[in-house]
Design a protein around this nucleic acid. Structure first.
Length: 811
DNA sequence: CTGGCATCTACA
DNA sequence: GTGTAGATG
């Protein structure tokens, strides 16, 4: 492709003799003119006079898309360097689970080994925010002053979840910086540009990725989910874009995803079915339990061709010809695959559509294969068709088919690793390919090439993780374990457990919350609401966990639990949550490559088109200094804005926090005593239980679980460290030494204390950076772009000394 | 006659 | 294990 195409309207067509060919890809300049996929080339010409139509090359009389496969692989090779947990979702999309990198950077943020680099966020957007600077501002303010949240935030989440949600925002920001690095690497090394979505699971990441294009990335914060879903058409969610989505809308009488919240899970299960009801119930809450399944190569290789109308295959010779052509392509691709992956297909499938009595009848037949040369494949395919068609040939001849064939497809799969390298050339290729991409255990039956060498060093000895991190992560881990279990053989019906346990637990949480509220309200004379009444909202994580846990239990266990005190359930649950710092995809990114618009290597930028107006990629960081005036909380040292309301709210927090820790400590000690009395076989180790239930999931979970440190429980935060001897540390009031500020801090407050240090650092860094965008040659600005610019200007003038200046466009 | 082709997943 | 329909890009 030449640079003269840069920015000009362009589309890719295949088979262009008839009406200009079918469009299979459209660049953004052409999209702006209304050109879409599925149009014919001629229609596109009508809409966009100067559109450039590129043809997909024809090989063997059919479209050959290998160029696009190769381009996708080239990009995927770059992506692979950033995580082992890479799932290629299609030829130009991939999911990256960057949880481990985020974890590492969270720690490094505290030690100063890592700092957020705002220039990585210049073309980043965040759902619900006018610009990324606003989002960053919110995060830093919350961390420095965690207990003053806006009403919307407070209403969206349960009090107990707020810390987790707060930390999630910082994690997403780090995720976005990683995405920025990834995309920069893709651009630098391949010339292709791509967009990305950064969120806590695949569904959300995919959704977010589509919100700002091209060449942009979008964060979807947890707190924005309810608002977004209120007006999000159901069909926008992956998996709901087709017939099923329509069924959902019709049977529920809804248009937007948020409307699904009105239905209980049971209702959804009744109206749809068990599985879909459960799935939709979670999706409507932004929960998607699908893990990023590492997969670099597809499970099958296939090709097909339609023979519409007059092109129907009616003769044996023609059929043999096309089977031979398809086999030839398969064979080529298979040879290449063998070189790279040292695997061989063990099964072939032939699909075909016949016209029988004017009706299209499709069939597919499979057979095991030992060889996959062209002739063998073609022959076997023909055999399969013959033997599965009642009257294959027309009576009275030996070449006319009884039923015309309208479609032929041939694919091979069920790959197995070749026993050993067949020759030195093959070995060399295999090794090179392996070096390049270091495939993780993708398939059970595909062995890692011997040369595979993980570059990731074992992470540094885990420092004390913040309570928030564990809370959020573990919550997801728990959910995941339950999900994985569904793949195991049928479990006992949850009947009893489902009905009673959640109710019981719910009351516990309600009581607990009420206590907190009463306590805080009593102290503050009822002036400032610190917690939303329980009936207004439910605990996002806790509720989900409760539900899943109930399902997880056999009736027997449920009965046993009913005997125990409510509080025991709660504490056990919290302990379990905190005990496992197991893996989950914390931050998922989807990268959406855009071959049609992308620039090739060596290409230079060209005159900007309309859509390039909103590009922020010319931004560069400039230093400036300013800080917001804060006062210090005597209790925890946190910086709080110097106003009465903020101070009051902050003190309320400490009170609530102490109460909550106190309750849990008491229960924990009680449990401990019980445990000592009882035999210590089964109850001791929640993490091992997770390992067991997760076993069937063949993601990287096994490795992560193995890494889980046994002592990674909340008790670590609550009990004094044996090594450090704080002055007044007692079992009831343990203290620890903060490495950061050399002060002794109550152990209960240590996690937040560390968060405070991190927040302070973050804010300092970010406050010192101001990004300025180079003034682009002014052309017509789209209404939305104009609005954005206006807002940016407003931001930069009103908050002249504020952090919102990041990334805002000033001149 | 013309909405192409490739790939994956769920489910019966 | 096998064949089919649906979803998606």
């Amino acid at each position: 492709m030449k640079q003269r195409y840069q920015g000009k309207p362009l589309a890719v067509v295949q088979y262009n003799p008839w009406r200009g060919g079918g469009i299979i890809a459209v660049n953004y300049a052409a999209r702006a003119k209304g050109v879409t996929r599925h149009m014919r080339g001629d229609e596109a010409k009508e809409l966009c006079h100067d559109i450039i139509l590129c043809k997909v090359p024809n090989i063997r009389e059919k479209a050959d898309t290998s160029k696009y496969r190769d381009a996708g692989k080239e990009v995927a090779n770059v992506l692979q360097r950033f995580t082992q947990k890479l799932e290629r979702a299609s030829v130009d999309e991939a999911y990256l689970d960057v949880t481990e990198t985020v974890n590492k950077r969270m720690e490094q943020l505290q030690t100063g080994e890592y700092t957020l680099k705002p220039q990585e966020l210049v073309n980043t957007f965040s759902v619900g925010y006018e610009c990324i600077g606003e989002y960053v501002n919110k995060i830093t303010n919350r961390f420095a002053n965690p207990y003053v949240d806006d009403a919307r935030f407070m209403l969206s989440y349960d009090h107990n979840d707020l810390p987790a949600v707060r930390q999630s925002d910082l994690r997403l920001l780090i995720g976005a910086s990683i995405a920025g690095e990834v995309r920069a690497a893709v651009k630098a090394e391949t010339g292709y540009e791509c967009s990305a979505g950064i969120a806590h699971n695949k569904i959300l990441a995919k959704l977010a990725a589509g919100m700002n294009k091209p060449n942009k990335q979008t964060i979807l914060p947890l707190a924005e989910i309810p608002g977004l879903f209120d007006t999000l058409p159901v069909g926008k969610i992956k998996g709901l874009g087709g017939k099923f989505g329509e069924t959902v809308c019709e049977t529920l009488g809804v248009k937007f995803l948020g409307q699904v919240l009105k239905f209980s899970e049971a209702e959804l299960q009744r109206k749809l079915d068990d599985k879909n009801g459960n799935w939709l119930h979670l999706i409507a809450r932004g929960i998607d339990l699908e893990a990023v399944t590492p997969r670099f190569y597809s499970k099958s290789i296939g090709c097909c061709k339609k023979f519409p109308g007059r092109n129907n295959i009616t003769g044996l010779k023609t059929l043999e010809h096309w089977l031979s052509e398809l086999s030839s392509e398969i064979n080529d691709r298979l040879e290449k695959d063998f070189m790279e992956n040292n695997r061989k297909a063990k099964q072939m499938v032939v699909q075909y559509v016949q016209e029988i009595d004017g009706e299209e009848v499709s069939s597919s037949r499979s057979a095991p294969i030992t060889q996959c040369d062209q002739e063998t494949l073609a022959k076997q395919a023909l055999e399969l068709i013959k033997t599965n068609t009642k009257t294959f040939l027309r009576a009275g001849g030996d070449s006319a088919l009884n039923n015309a064939i309208r479609f032929l497809g041939l694919s091979v799969g069920k790959f197995e690793t070749a026993s050993n390298a067949q020759n030195s050339l093959q070995a060399m290729f295999a090794n090179q390919a392996a070096k390049k991409r270091r495939i993780s255990a993708e398939e059970d039956h595909v062995e890692k090439p011997a040369v595979v060498e993980p570059k990731a060093k074992p992470s540094e000895a885990a420092k004390m993780k913040s309570f928030f991190a564990n809370y959020l992560q573990a919550g997801k881990a728990e959910a995941k374990a339950v999900e994985a279990e569904k793949e195991l053989p049928p479990k006992p019906a949850p009947s009893e457990a489902e009905a009673t346990v959640p109710a019981a637990k719910k009351s516990v949480f309600e009581t607990y919350k009420r206590k907190l509220i009463e306590a805080t309200v009593a102290e503050e004379n009822g002036e400032i609401p610190t917690s939303t009444p329980p009936e207004l909202k439910e605990s996002f994580f806790a509720n989900y966990l409760k539900l899943q846990k109930a399902k997880d239990q056999t009736s027997e266990e449920a009965a046993a639990n009913e005997d125990s005190a409510d509080m025991n359930d709660l504490v056990a649950e919290l302990d379990e949550i905190e005990a496992s710092s197991a893996k989950v995809e914390e931050n998922t990114e989807i990268l959406d490559m855009q071959p049609s618009t992308s620039k090739r290597k060596l290409e230079q930028e060209s005159p900007s088109q309309d859509y390039t107006k909103s590009y922020a990629e010319y931004a560069q960081p400039v230093l400036s200094t300013d800080l917001i005036t804060m006062v210090k909380c005597e209790e925890c040292g946190a910086q709080i804005p110097d106003d009465l309301k903020a101070l009051q709210t902050h003190r309320d927090h400490h009170f609530a926090q102490q109460l909550s820790h106190q309750i849990r400590n008491e229960r924990r000690e009680e449990m401990q005593r019980k445990r000592l009395n009882a035999s210590t076989t089964s109850t001791s180790s929640p993490p091992s239980k997770l390992t067991a239930t997760k076993k069937s999931k063949k993601t990287a979970s096994t490795t992560s679980v193995a890494k889980t440190k046994p002592g990674n429980s909340i008790t670590k935060f609550l009990a004094a460290k044996p090594s450090s001897e704080p002055p007044a540390s007692t079992s009831s009031n343990p203290m620890e030494h903060c490495a950061e500020c050399k002060k002794y801090i109550k152990s209960v407050d240590m996690p937040e204390h560390l968060d405070y240090h991190m927040a302070k650092k973050l804010q300092r860094e970010l406050n010192q950076l101001q990004v300025r965008t180079i003034n682009l040659p002014s052309k017509k600005v789209s209404p939305t772009a104009a609005k954005k610019q206006l807002n940016s200007t407003l931001n930069s003038t009103t908050g002249s000394k504020s952090i919102t200046q990041f990334f805002t466009q000033t001149n």
